[in-house]
Design a protein around this nucleic acid. Structure first.
Lengths: 232, 232
DNA sequence: CTCCCATGTTACGATCTCGTCGCACAACCA
DNA sequence: TGGTTGTGCGACGAGATCGTAACATGGGAG
């Protein structure tokens, strides 16, 4: 199922762990040298690294630091294997960086459970390829918005904006949230750019019965069916 | 799992169907009046409608027609419940519009199976929100490509192109496939537009070690780590 | 070796895009 | 009611974008 890199200089441990992992359908790559971990992690891009803290040459904490320093390995979760004899503060230090740790000696079953937990935690986020909101359909694969099968011609900025608004229909999205989602910054309270793009969206979508509403000092919201306000 | 709207004026049938559906983890909404179906479908936007053909006031065929007439309900699959006594031509007429139908009396188990089949057919397509290919990460939520956490400034056309290429790394994508994926048409063999955009991609991505390869008369392909060719 | 054709590359300009400005307008407060 | 503040809206222009044309290059067939 997943690809796992096992790092330990004791061949017995590598074999034991590999055996159990392979039984659960995982692909295993192993390395016995601390210095080889980062290059191997870059090469094989595993989903998880099981890292012994006791390694010849460079210890596991150093390896972990290097893994976190390289952008190509930074995202890979790490489970560290520590010795019971080591001081608690070292373990505490590990907790900050590693995703989990296990003290030797450990039962293979426990390691498997922890590996399963970490893999589940780092499970890839999936999203709907096509998202329907009222009459509209957002096609994230083609990066387009269509209504009744007909594509609406939007620029990339407009698309990002309406996507953010459509992510939660009928809820208020503050200016800051929208600025951040579309432009990547949050503190631009005096610019009129957002207003202008809202206007452009309204012009393009208004034809189709969609509505971008305003809540003064609160933000904007998207709704497909305009609620009629009853006037006395 | 799914939200299902059950329409029948006989409370016994509604209860029976609801019970079975809830046992399978579905959320059930029910309506006993034909005229209330379309508004309720708009309000609750179910994944499927189970619609009895015998209803007081307005019959199921009319309701079905109205569901198909409104763009907000047009996409919702419908399973119709018909009476065995009804003529075959009516059933034939249903087949054109409804996604499935079942003649009364029916076994709950058969209805469940058909519901399962229809739901499976209309199952939503999911995709990875973030897709990692080598050093690159395609963020479909933000519609951006980044390497080492740093966004690469791509235009929407370039983004669509590289997205298509990255969907299957190392495999050849023909010109026609790319033209169709990015521009929406397939027969433009003499235009140099694609070449130019490939060039622009290469210029922007080449800095980061990615490579868009050419296979003469075959197409283009994306690879993250350039294979070194050995020269004599 | 030579020619042909698919692709690479550059340059160009029409068009699009988008942030800003300035003013209009509307909501809210006193 | 009048003032203040936040938003709507049209216009503008610098820069981005993208398709096309024209020429360069290079692989492969004969």
């Amino acid at each position: 199922m997943s690809k796992i890199l096992v790092v330990d200089d004791e061949k017995d441990i590598v074999d034991l762990v590999s055996l159990h992992l392979q039984r659960e359908g995982h692909e295993v790559v192993s390395v016995g040298n601390g210095l080889a971990v980062v290059p191997e992690a870059i090469r094989s891009s595993p989903d998880l690294i099981v890292l012994d803290i006791m390694l010849p040459g460079i210890d596991g904490v150093q390896v972990h630091r290097r893994l976190r320093a390289d952008s190509r390995t930074r995202h890979i979760p790490v489970i560290m294997l520590t010795a019971r004899s080591q001081t608690n503060d070292r373990i505490a230090g590990l907790e900050g960086g590693a995703d989990d740790y296990l003290t030797k000696p450990f039962s293979p079953r426990e390691l498997m459970l922890r590996i399963g937990a970490v893999l589940r935690r780092s499970q890839k986020v999936v999203m709907l390829a096509e998202q329907r909101i009222g009459d509209f359909m957002l096609d994230r694969k083609n990066m387009s918005l269509s209504i009744n099968g007909q594509q609406i011609d939007l620029t990339i900025t407009e698309l990002k904006l309406i996507t953010t608004l459509m992510a939660n229909p009928d809820v208020i999205h503050s200016r800051g949230e929208l600025l951040n989602a579309v432009w990547g910054y949050a503190d631009d309270t005096q610019s009129r750019t957002l207003d202008t793009h809202i206007k452009r969206l309204r012009d393009k979508l208004g034809t189709y019965g969609a509505h971008v509403g305003t809540l003064r000092r609160q933000g904007y919201f998207f709704q497909t069916q305009v609620e009629q306000k009853v006037k006395a």
